[in-house]
Design a protein around this nucleic acid. Structure first.
Length: 429
DNA sequence: TCTGGGGTCCTAGGACCC
DNA sequence: TCTGGGGTCCTAGGACCC
């Protein structure tokens, strides 16, 4: 498909175009920013514990390394092509992301930050393509991050436009109404935002192969088989905006910390230590948003990939007496919960901590019969401030620290925190 | 040997109430 | 002993996203 759909007039009907601005190979691009020597080299980024490949630079994609593959399965390719491999450095990615987002927000009226590497923006301009050029250039110049921009009447169509831009139009594409049908005929059903693997299989089995085939189906049929979510997708593809534009940052409904252990864990004590460190993690996220939680769920599971091991998984939800933002309440609950679901004789792979029933203090009706202990508030404020200022983990509760724990995550190929740690600041000679 | 983590939304089904 | 139906709330599970 060429780029012949560019045109300099606003779409008829005055519909406000939606732009999707999306960073190219985000994690891999972050790693390249401070390493000019990697400019045209293949780069991959690993998941926690250096397990799977979660992101690839375009050079790495060309080597046909499958996304999501465990590192050990593609080791040979990696060595042969001298692919540069990094552990994931979320501190770096988070910081680069907020720089990119603030540029987008400065330069346009309404923005929804959709994920770490993409944002939707309402672009009410005479010529959105001109504007896309400008923004892209600015982001590249100020942060070093390459982005692609797709523009269309709805979010789902903007996704498609972005995809086309990435593939064949130098990163920018405006999908206008008069070309929509042609483009939808060229869009395989599994490339539609909101149609995942399961649904694509189902639709293909019904001979629905493209986005165009999909919008030919009756509303009732789509709703029956794909629920209201699928029906919205259909409407969006037809140019009818059906997915809300969420400008405000949504409050989380849940906060999770869940990690695999570096090694299988058999002892209750190690399991408790690991879990408590995840409680700290989740609690830190919650504190940053100034939320309180009323319940905490603990999950634990063995490694289901190891077919010969005995398998066990379980979970338990602990209700706190009241909404709390006092760390020891959560530590106590987690300790009690894990002891209840722990069974001797298994090799545990992972525990997860989920905080739910989250509220801002102003939304909570105080309980007349619970006496408040003002000392708790002081301790909490003091600990939170120290952890915000000096980084999470500065003050901990009932937790042995240090590396070398059996449960600590593996991150052997970590890059420096170039932008968030003084000692990691890049030097210029 | 080594196989990610963190979210959202929707539905079905059970418990319970009237 | 016969035996209805509507409503709400909760949870588990399955789909999706990045």
């Amino acid at each position: 498909m060429g780029c012949s759909y560019f045109c300099n007039s606003l779409p008829k009907g005055g519909m406000m175009p939606i732009a999707l601005i999306d960073c190219n190979s985000f994690y891999a691009s972050c790693e390249k920013i401070f390493r000019p020597d990697l400019k045209d080299r293949p780069v991959v980024v690993l998941s926690n514990n250096d397990g799977c490949i979660v992101a690839m630079s375009s050079e790495a994609k060309k080597l046909k390394i499958p996304r999501g593959a465990p590192l050990f399965k593609v080791k040979e390719l990696i060595d042969r092509y001298k692919v540069e491999v990094f552990s994931s450095n979320y501190t770096l990615y988070g910081d680069i992301s907020s720089r990119v987002m603030s540029i987008i927000m400065e330069s346009t009226d309404t923005v929804e930050v959709y994920s770490i590497d993409e944002a939707f923006a309402n672009w009410n301009f005479q010529d959105p393509i001109d504007y896309a050029y400008l923004i892209r250039k600015r982001i590249k110049m100020w942060t070093g991050m390459p982005v692609s921009i797709g523009i269309a009447e709805t979010k789902t169509l903007a996704k498609i436009a972005n995809h086309i831009g990435k593939k064949s139009c130098n990163g920018l594409f405006w999908l206008q109404e008069e070309y929509r049908e042609e483009i939808l005929r060229d869009t395989p059903i599994e490339d539609v935002w909101g149609i995942g693997r399961q649904l694509a299989l189902f639709l293909r089995s019904r001979n629905i192969m493209t986005a165009y085939d999909f919008i030919q189906q009756e509303d009732w049929w789509v709703k029956k088989h794909l629920t209201i979510v699928g029906l919205r997708t259909k409407w969006e593809l037809q140019g009818r905006a059906s997915i809300n534009f969420e400008e405000e940052v949504k409050e989380n409904r849940a906060i999770m910390s869940s990690k695999s252990f570096g090694n299988p864990i058999t002892e209750l004590d190690d399991l408790l230590e690991g879990t408590k460190s995840y409680v700290h993690d989740a609690f830190h996220k919650m504190s940053k948003q100034k939320l309180k939680a009323k319940s905490i769920t603990l999950y634990l599971t063995t490694n289901s990939f190891r077919k010969n091991d005995m398998q066990y998984r379980n979970s338990i939800t602990m209700e706190l007496e009241d909404y709390s933002d006092y760390l020891p309440d959560f530590i106590k609950a987690a300790d009690k919960g894990i002891r209840q679901i722990f069974r001797e004789g298994y090799k545990y792979k992972k525990t997860s901590v989920l905080l739910t029933d989250l509220k801002l203090p102003k939304e909570i009706t105080p309980d007349l019969f619970t006496l408040k202990d003002p000392r708790k508030d002081k301790i909490r404020d003091c600990v939170n401030e120290l952890n915000m200022r000096y980084g999470k983990g500065t003050v901990v509760c009932n937790l042995k620290r240090g590396s070398g724990n059996r449960w600590t995550m593996k991150r052997e190929l970590l890059s420096p925190e170039y932008t968030t740690k003084w000692k990691d600041l890049p030097k210029v000679n």
